[in-house]
Amino acid sequence: MTTATQIAEKLDALPESSAVALKIRGEQYFDVIRGILDIFAKKKEMDSIYVTATIPCQSIMNALQVLEIDTERIWFVDCISQIMMSVGEKHPHAIYVESPTMLENLMLKVEYLIRRAEGKKKLVILDNINSLAIHNNIKILSEFLHILVNNLRSKNTYTIIFSMEEYETDEMTNMLNLVCDESMTLEGG
């Protein structure tokens, strides 16, 4: 079984609107994205809201195109382009947050995207917790996750929080365990 089908099947086995902490290694990154966006979200006919605090959304979008993943139902909240001064041309599927320290604005933009297409089932990806931890202290980050996850749960939305295994500290593990229903790792590369 490939990494992509593995993650899709694991997610499929979870109760609706679960919050998942997904521990991944760098080399699994694109397979994971394919599994979530191209297999799981597609099968469930969900819109995906992709929050990036790591790579500018334009780069992710380019990668998705190379992977031939349909981006019609994928929306981005990009918290990194502006501080990296790499917004360039604004993508119609992207909303930009000034910086990854604006956690409230991040939540507001996610809320906006959910509201704008109310009624449709949705999935939110947070990529990733380690980058957010560079810009925010752990206290404010836990408060943020708590509010975000509870809010999304109340709106019947899946939440998938990426954590890069190499960079996950014990503090982060505890925090993720506290807010998420499920913690997942994947076998193989």
Binding site: E104, L108, E111, Y112, N137, K139, I140, E143, F144, I147
Partner: peptide, 13 residues
């Protein structure tokens, strides 16, 4: 926003 006023709690951290 165009869907109206949206509110989230101010994080205290």
């Amino acid at each position: 926003t165009t869907v109206g006023v949206l509110l989230v709690p101010l994080l205290k951290g």
